[in-house]
Simulated scan of single mutants.
Amino acid sequence: MTFSLTRRTLFGTGAVGALAAPTLLTHFAKAQDRMETSATTDGTAFKTLKLGAAKVTVISDGTRMSGKPHETYGLNQTADAVSALLTENFLPADGFVNGFSPALVDTGTDVVLFDTGLGEAGREMGTGKLVDGLKAAGYMPEQVSVVVITHMHGDHIGGLITAGKPTFPNARYVAGQVEYDFWKDEARAGTPAENGHKAVLEKVVPLAEKTTFIADGAEVVPGITALAAFGHSPGHMVFRLDSDNKALMLTADTANHYVLSLQRPDWEVRFDMDKAAAAAARRKVFDMIATDRLPFIGYHMPFPAVGFVERSDLGYRFVPATYQFDI
Results as ranks from 00 to 15, higher is better:
221 V>D: 09
292 D>E: 13
265 P>S: 04
268 E>K: 10
210 K>S: 07
59 I>V: 05
223 G>M: 12
169 P>G: 02
249 M>Q: 14
275 K>V: 10
121 A>Q: 07
159 G>A: 05
106 D>K: 00
327 I>N: 14
107 T>A: 03
268 E>C: 04
111 V>W: 12
163 A>V: 03
134 L>H: 01
3 F>V: 12
173 Y>H: 00
192 P>C: 02
272 D>T: 09
21 A>Q: 13
248 L>D: 09
315 G>Y: 00
211 T>Y: 04
304 P>D: 03
301 M>H: 05
140 M>N: 10
72 T>Q: 13
219 E>I: 03
264 R>C: 05
52 G>W: 11
294 L>P: 01
299 Y>K: 01
197 H>D: 14
202 E>L: 04
116 T>R: 08
299 Y>G: 01
231 G>R: 08
296 F>K: 00
258 Y>P: 02
271 F>G: 15
289 I>P: 11
32 Q>M: 13
216 D>Y: 00
273 M>D: 15
29 A>Q: 03
218 A>Y: 03
323 Y>I: 09
236 H>I: 04
115 D>S: 04
29 A>R: 03
219 E>R: 04
64 R>G: 10
115 D>A: 01
72 T>H: 11
276 A>Q: 12
193 A>E: 06
43 G>M: 01
237 M>L: 14
149 I>M: 15
135 K>Q: 12
274 D>M: 04
261 S>F: 09
41 T>F: 14
9 T>Q: 09
70 H>M: 10
301 M>W: 03
184 K>V: 04
89 N>L: 06
113 L>W: 12
44 T>A: 05
